[in-house]
Structure formats: structure tokens, C-alpha cells
Design a protein around this nucleic acid. Structure first.
Lengths: 205, 205
DNA sequence: AAAAAAGATTGAATGAATTCATTTTTTAAG
DNA sequence: CTTAAAAAATGAATTCATTCAATCTTTTTT
């Protein structure tokens, strides 16, 4: 059996994370007080800080769980991509974007992305950055698959193109999160337009 | 003559901005206390807040001045670009990156970018976003100029390509700012590699 | 040039994140 | 089963950004 200590630790950790995620969604990041998170998790403020370095850290942890989902959702597309470069990109990126707002508000995304930039050394920022890298890899993998299928011309530098596409879709998502009024569909349309020429250029003749 | 009030206002504003910029560089953003900034500017804490909405705002103001410089530096390249797509992009982007660390530390950039994402409605965040838009336009303008010169194929969607290039160089700069150890030359080399295939694809035959 | 109005400055008070010396709980040793 | 050592939890104290009612300065009006 797992030691009592380990079990209690896992349990408290979950209670804190759940309480925080819920409160962030209910009242927003700024208005959520550590004291309230701790109270809901039936834990003292000090204990909160034994589990998370600071307030930002737990938000990034929450958001990271969501990115894991996005990554998993992306796999279904990569495993079975539409048979045109443009269509495949649109499907994968659409999947990313659609998932993004299911559990998280734009404010939560903004804050999490901001923190991962500002305190890149905190443990959860590192995890977030790692997840970004995996998303980027996923885009490259998609292009590579299309190349193997003969849909992308053989000479293409898959990694370079993949990185550029990912950095673009990521930056566009940041802009999207910054503008409370911008709808998801508008974001998708803009990114599609940006991708179109590149997709055409790398498509096999 | 300008009214006394207007003169005093401009003077105080400058003193506050100078004090803040200096202190941020000396001790970093987090360790710089508003009280210290105010003291150096020979102004009360309350007055500081009459001039800037919050601590972040004055950092973004500092960084924005630097982006203005970067933009001006970019114009010299756009006005007289090297005569290959790859060379022109390398020159413009190199110019951006070289300027970026003259007066500002990576930490200052990180913090400013984080704030502009997190509080997009604050006045200086808007200014920062506007400057980013102008940088993006500058990249598009460069491509357009090359197109007029016959170096880029006529059908190219200049805006789409420009936006993608800019978003990529911007995101790469964020990554650069996140890794204290990553040297400027490495950043440039990575971005060049990413740009190369795109440059080749849009180059006129 | 005195009085009134408008505009700015001030710093003590507020509120929330974070720290840390103590206390409590769990595990390991005898 | 006690006891010592290690690990965690606790919450009062600290630190800093931010606010705001009171005060002072400049401008406008009479």
C-alpha cells in the first residue's frame, strides 16, 4: 500500500488544484484569493505554498491540463488527416482552437501565457513550454505525413515549415485572447487565409 | 509660452520615466519598488499613479520607446533592401534583433510582453500592440517592395506571408527572451533557417 | 488682486500575495 | 511501544502595489 503521507499529499494536491480551477472560472484569476482557494481546499494558506510556488503557478498548472487535452484531440487529426494540405491544416488548427475555450476563459489563457513568458523557470511554466513544443511537433508531424503521402513536395524542410505554421497559429491565438470580442470563427478565418499561400507553395505539383 | 502647469507635468513625467527605466535596468522589474521610483523622481507615490496606471504600465512605456527605435532602424533596411529575398529578410530581422538588447534586458522584454498580453486594455499595452502592428506592416512592406522589384513572384499574397513571417520572428523573440542563455546569434540562425524555405518558395523564378 | 474653481500632489490606509518560525503529524529506529 | 528524526501544515507577520480623502497650487473669473 502507498504510505499515508503520499496518499494525503496526492489528495491535498488535487483538492487545491480543483478548488483553484473552479474559483478561477467562477470569479476570474485576479479576483480569486489564495485564502479562498486554500479554504475551499480545506488547507491553510501556508500549505498552498508548499504545493505551488505562487498564484500564477497553479493557473499554469490548470491551463497545462487543458493543453494536454488539445494535444490529444490533435492526434485524432494527425492519425487520419484530410487529403489536402490546406484541409489538413485547417482541420488540425480548428481542432486546437475549438478545444481551447471549452473549460478556459480568454482571461485565463492570457494570464497563463503571460506567466509562462514572465517566469519561464517556474516548474509549471516549463511544463507549459514543453507542451507547446509538443504541439509544434504535432504540426510538423502532420506536414511530414502529408509529404509521405505525396501531397507535399519532397524537398520541403518539414521542420522549418512546421515551426513557422505553429508560431503563427500560436501568436494568432494570443491576439485572439487579447480581444474579448473577437469570435473563434474570425480567428480561424484569419489563420486559414495566412496559411493558404504557404499551403499552396508546399503542395506537391 | 507654455503654461506652468503643462511644463511641470512634462517635467515630472520625464523624471518618473527616467527613474523607472534606470531602476528597472539596475535591479530588475520585480525588485524595483514604486516607492523607490517615486523617490528618485522626487515625487510622491500618489503622483506616480497620476501619471501611470500601474507598475506594469511604466515598463511597457519604457519598452515602447525602444520599439519605436527598432521601427526606425527597420526603415533604413526597407528603404534600401538587399537584392535577394533571403538577404533582405535577414537584414531586416537582424536589425530588429540587434537593436532589441541595447537598452533593455531580456527580463524587461519578457515582463513587457507578458503585461501587454495580460492587460491588453491598459493604454500602454495598446500602444505596444499598435507598434507590433507597425512592425508587421514593415515586414509586409519589405516583401511588397521586393515584389515590385521583380524578386518575389507576382501572385504572392504579400500580407499573408508578411504576417506569418512577423508572427514567427516575434514568437521566436519571445522564446529567446525566455532563455537567458540563448545568444542573439543563435536566435538569428534559427529564424534564418525557418525563413529560408519560405523565401525560396516566394522568390520569382 | 481677491475669490472661486479646477487640477494636482500627498502619504497614510487598505488589501492581497508571500514568507517563515512554530507546531503537528507521520515515519523509522531501537 | 517509545522515542527520535524527517516531513508537512499552520497562520500571524511582512512586504508592496494600489487607493483615496485631505491639502496645496495653478488658473480663471469677477
Amino acid at each position: 500500500m502507498t504510505g499515508l503521507r503520499a496518499r494525503q499529499k496526492a489528495d491535498r494536491n488535487r483538492r487545491i488544484l480543483d478548488a483553484a480551477a473552479l474559483l478561477f472560472r467562477e470569479v476570474g484569476y485576479d479576483s480569486a484569493r489564495i485564502e479562498d482557494i486554500a479554504e475551499r481546499a480545506e488547507v491553510s494558506v501556508g500549505t498552498f505554498y508548499n504545493y505551488y510556488e505562487n498564484k500564477g503557478d497553479i493557473l499554469v498548472a490548470t491551463v497545462s491540463m487543458e493543453v494536454e487535452e488539445v494535444l490529444a484531440a490533435g492526434r485524432t487529426i494527425v492519425d487520419n488527416p484530410p487529403s489536402s494540405v490546406e484541409g489538413a491544416l485547417e482541420a488540425l488548427i480548428g481542432q486546437y482552437y475549438d478545444h481551447s475555450l471549452v473549460y478556459l476563459s480568454k482571461e485565463m489563457w492570457r494570464t497563463a501565457m503571460a506567466i509562462s513568458i514572465q517566469q519561464p523557470e517556474s516548474p509549471f511554466s516549463k511544463r507549459y513550454t514543453e507542451l507547446d513544443r509538443r504541439l509544434c511537433d504535432q504540426v510538423s508531424t502532420l506536414i511530414h505525413k502529408l509529404q509521405v503521402k505525396g501531397l507535399v513536395s519532397p524537398g520541403t524542410d518539414v521542420r522549418a515549415i512546421g515551426e513557422m505554421l505553429f508560431n503563427n497559429l500560436n501568436m494568432m491565438f494570443i491576439e485572439f485572447a487579447k480581444h474579448e470580442a473577437l469570435p473563434l470563427e474570425e480567428l480561424k478565418a484569419r489563420v486559414s487565409r495566412q496559411n493558404r499561400p504557404l499551403a499552396a507553395l508546399i503542395a506537391a505539383p
